[in-house]
């Protein structure tokens, strides 16, 4: 038995030594959300640069975070959402990025750079973004029923709303209608938001983050808070389902390229980030994936129908009220959790 263990350990060491010896900058280990980059884009990058891209995928920020934190090597680029950029940056899990080495970085719209979760983009390069806002089925509700976030509290919407099954988004809309930040840390404001949301509970029929478009399309719910990607699909199947950006504000998400601590192919990582930010590539990605590109030049290259669609490409004025989710400190997250559990257990 002991011999076997020794043999396995030796094999592992030999393997580790040879792989690190082979580690040249002609390889890029990309760790990204599943179905989040078209194969053609990756193939084209490899053809142009001779860099082989190894892709591994994840389906939650938490999974990616745990791997980077516990294993700490083997990836050259990860793609966290804004709040996880904040968390990983603060915990020292990311390597600084020199934006001067990425010429196309200048094309990123001002709306997406220098945000609170990563001032001056010292650690993150925006990849794709979207919003969580209000979808309304105008077949079931007159258009003027919901124009503001606070309209969701109207008594005639009893049992007719859908919400994400996500404490940050639900507590976020409560905070926004009271004029607070979605990243609020003040316990008194959180308490008020909780009381506000208690009054919203009778109106909520479903909490669903997986496929909220189903309930909307089936007519099970008349309106609610959904991700713009879901609203986009629902709207393309039924144009009566519209998407509004309430004046009180809403949450924005942004996924960014980051270089995790322990990355070994920095040159390849920089080359990849710059390549993705070239307008043609960014546009191709946005079109294939159905999410919005933060690249100003890329938007002009999109097909007309997508360019005009305010669900995927809202005007800067429309998203001015949006706010990015940032990471919360452990004590504040406990408060959010406590209120979320209370909302759901009454």
């Amino acid at each position: 038995m002991k011999n076997i263990v020794q043999a396995v350990l030796m094999a592992a060491t030999v393997w580790a030594l040879t792989t690190s010896a082979l580690a040249s900058d002609k390889v890029l280990n990309l760790y990204i959300w599943s179905e989040y980059i078209p194969d053609e884009v990756v193939a084209d990058f490899s053809k142009k640069t001779g860099i082989k891209v190894n892709i591994s995928t994840y389906d939650s920020n938490e999974a990616m975070y745990a791997k980077v934190k516990l294993v700490g090597k083997g990836y050259d680029i990860v793609v966290p959402s804004s709040d996880f950029v904040g968390l990983m940056r603060r915990e020292g899990l990311l390597l600084p990025i020199d934006t001067k080495k990425i010429p196309h970085f200048s094309l990123v719209a001002p709306r997406f750079v220098n945000q609170s979760f990563d001032p001056n983009n010292g650690y993150s390069i925006p990849y794709m973004w979207g919003s969580t806002s209000i979808a309304v089925n105008t077949e079931l509700l007159p258009k003027e029923t919901i124009t503001k976030a606070v309209d969701l509290w109207k008594p005639e919407l009893k049992g007719r709303l859908i919400m994400p099954n996500d404490l940050r988004e639900v507590i976020g809309i409560g905070l926004k209608t009271l004029g607070y930040s979605i990243n609020e840390t003040n316990p008194e404001h959180l308490e008020k938001a909780y009381q506000q949301l208690q009054k919203l509970m009778p109106n909520i029929r479903v909490f669903d983050s997986d496929s909220p478009k189903q309930a909307l399309l089936a007519g099970e719910v008349a309106a609610g808070l959904v991700y713009n990607g879901e609203a986009f699909i629902a709207n393309s199947e039924n144009p009566a389902i519209t998407y509004i950006y309430p004046p009180e504000g809403f949450s924005l998400w942004l996924d960014s390229f980051c270089i995790p601590k322990g990355a070994e192919h920095l040159e390849a990582a920089y080359a990849f980030m710059d390549y993705v930010l070239t307008p043609k590539v960014s546009a191709a990605i946005s079109e294939a994936m159905g999410y919005s590109s933060p690249n100003t030049k890329a938007i002009t290259l999109l097909p007309e129908a997508m360019k005009k669609n305010s669900i995927v490409n809202p005007s800067p004025e429309m998203v001015a009220q949006g706010e990015f989710l940032d990471h919360l400190d452990a004590d504040t997250l406990k408060l959010y959790e406590q209120y979320w559990v209370q909302l759901k257990t009454h």
Partner: peptide, 24 residues
């Protein structure tokens, strides 16, 4: 209960999953 019931109430299973996945 989440998929068919609309996830309006919380069960022990939800609680355990959330502790692992959301609150770390």
């Amino acid at each position: 209960a989440d998929v068919l019931g609309g996830a309006r109430s919380m069960l022990l299973g939800n609680y355990i999953r959330d502790q692992f996945l959301i609150y770390r």
